[in-house]
């Protein structure tokens, strides 16, 4: 079911490509890197998206509340001064890891805020980590992460 829809979308995206290719640089990572979105762990998602990389632990700031009372909408901010090509946001509390993959425009500013769902379960005990990986225009990878507690019952999935 899931996969079928996925493929359908991919076909759509490809069909729509020729018309838009010249003007914009929009990349649909769901179509180009489908395995990223079904990966159950952060490591697997990173591997599916970027390959076998060894990101450097610097220059990427992840901001989350220390304790999130509402797991249905946890505010996350990703910031970096590194000239970036791609920014991926991942977490280790939900059934799958990937949350967002940004295609950073030329001269783009990496200062992204969004609200995400984080599911507190018996296994994770309401504790999790949000991770951001920046692919620099220099071809290197940088990583930042922050742990948090999520109150139970705030999110149904």
């Amino acid at each position: 079911m899931e996969r079928r829809k996925f493929l359908g979308l991919g076909v759509l995206a490809i069909a729509a490509l020729p018309a838009t290719l010249s003007a914009i640089t929009s990349i649909d990572f769901r179509a180009t890197k489908p395995d990223t979105w079904t990966a159950k762990t952060v490591d697997d998602a990173v591997k599916a998206l970027f390959g076998d990389i060894k990101p450097e632990e610097k220059g990427v700031k992840v901001n989350v509340p220390a304790v999130a009372s509402n797991g249905g909408a946890v505010p996350v901010t990703i910031k970096s001064d590194i000239p970036a090509k791609t920014v991926a946001v991942l977490q280790d509390m939900d059934p799958e890891s990937a949350v967002a993959v940004f295609q950073v425009p030329e001269d783009g500013i990496v200062d992204y805020s969004l609200k995400i769902k984080l599911k507190a379960t018996d296994e994770n005990g309401g504790k999790g980590t949000v991770t951001a990986i920046v692919e620099g225009t220099d071809g290197k990878f940088y990583i930042g992460s922050k742990g948090l507690d999520v109150a139970k019952g705030g999110c149904e999935g």
């Binding site: 640089t25 990572f29 249905g72 909408a73 946890v74 949350v99 967002a100 295609q103 950073v104 609200k115």
Partner: peptide
Amino acid sequence: DVSTSQFWSK
């Protein structure tokens, strides 16, 4: 430009 997952909030 961002590809998103089901885990963005409602």
